[in-house]
Design a protein around this nucleic acid. Structure first.
Lengths: 223, 223
DNA sequence: CGCCCCATTGAAGGATCTCAACTAAGGTGG
DNA sequence: CCACCTTAGTTGAGATCCTTCAATGGGGCG
């Protein structure tokens, strides 16, 4: 495995000079992880920034009755852990690998020093964090919608706009998607079936095709 | 009205040198606003950072069927607008004054220059933004809870922990609180009444007293 | 003092969750 | 490479909880 992986491929470090990247590499610790491994959880003593070089990771919190709520999915080149870079504790979040992954770890203290050395880093971090904020606001929006069918329609529409294609693959398992938009797998199945019966979408496994965009928009708009 | 208001009282600028503060003050434009005034909305041409010196402002987005969803409340010394400091557009958020307010405005371009001049500013901004992220995650958590009574109990518990007192004032009107936790004012009234009947809390106007903390915790835990 | 907005109360209908059983898919080890 | 085991997805039926709609009461502000 090549050390350059983490420093070169991630947006966080993208516009730093080569010599700076080399310095940062020295602080990085590599790890190979398999599915279902938990990489961090609340109240851990050792705080760290986790950069996902390749693979997939899900970030979730537990609701009061012990169910997972998926907060976001971390893809190649993204990271998690900036939340507790300033001495704040992590009270709520779990990070679980959902696919074979190569990760890079930087200790909180090391990263804090980096931040002070490289102002650009703080700006990058800020920029990326603002994006995360926006995602959370979006999830909030889904959750506030009463009718599940409408939540799904809204979700599909946003995904369509994101990918700019009428066919796409759901990035989450049904189970996790249900969780993300705040419903149960059963209801999700039934609602997808409804949308199919109405000829609005076609669904094969996790592949979605939007057949009738106007109707989908209507479904997202109506009550 | 004193110009020092905005630069001195807000956490964003708190650890800058006096001379730097003076420079920043020159970029600031003051405004006095009354209740119900909308200070920014989606797709505006002029992007700006809005600092709330005194007063109250609510940030909300519209759901697809045109209802407000309150995202957060901005109190004295807080600000809003960092989301679009990096050329990003604001697609979804509205800012509305809910109480007589004094605000300070910095134009996007000016603030961007500041950011590059003062690395510390980026760090401050980042820190505060991480807090906002956390708040959004919390709101998400409320919304995912099925039973409204449990949502309220969870909300009350968190507020209790925040203030560290068994008596406190709800920071939102019933209407807005209902909105924030994703229900209707009617349901909220009924649920509060239930909690009162069970002698778990006492509510007088917007003043809450937790009478039975254990029971409140149980309500938040049970289904 | 009157208006308007917000909170409250009641009744009815509907949507979703829950539970349970079954099928499909995926992964592992022999 | 197959068989088994575990996890994910589907289907059905019933119960529950919340929203909706409408009407009333109260409080603050001009």
């Amino acid at each position: 495995m090549n050390n350059h992986l983490c420093v070169d491929n991630v947006p966080l470090f993208k516009d730093l000079a080569l010599e700076d990247k080399i310095k940062i590499e020295k602080l990085i610790q590599y790890q190979h992880l398999n599915k279902n491994e938990i990489i961090f959880q609340p109240y851990e003593n050792e705080k760290k920034l986790i950069i996902l070089a390749t693979g997939l990771m899900k970030i979730y919190q537990l609701t009061d009755d012990g169910k997972e709520q998926i907060i976001r999915i971390i893809n190649d080149g993204e990271y998690e852990g900036e939340n507790w870079l300033f001495g704040q504790d992590n009270f709520n979040l779990y990070g679980e690998i959902t696919d074979k992954s190569e990760i890079c770890i930087i200790k909180e203290t090391d990263f804090n020093q980096l931040l002070n050395q490289y102002p650009k880093l703080a700006l990058n971090l800020l920029k990326i964090n603002l994006q995360k904020t926006h995602e959370l606001e979006k999830q909030n929006k889904y959750l506030i919608i009463q009718k599940i069918e409408k939540r799904i329609a809204t979700y599909l529409l946003e995904t369509y706009h994101l990918k700019n294609k009428v066919t796409f693959k759901l990035p989450l398992k049904m189970k996790d998607l249900a969780n993300y938009i705040g419903t149960t797998p059963e209801t999700l199945t039934r609602k997808f079936k409804l949308l199919e019966q109405e000829q609005i979408i076609k669904k094969e496994k996790s592949n979605i095709e939007i057949l009738n965009l106007n109707q989908l928009i209507k479904t997202a708009d109506n009550n």
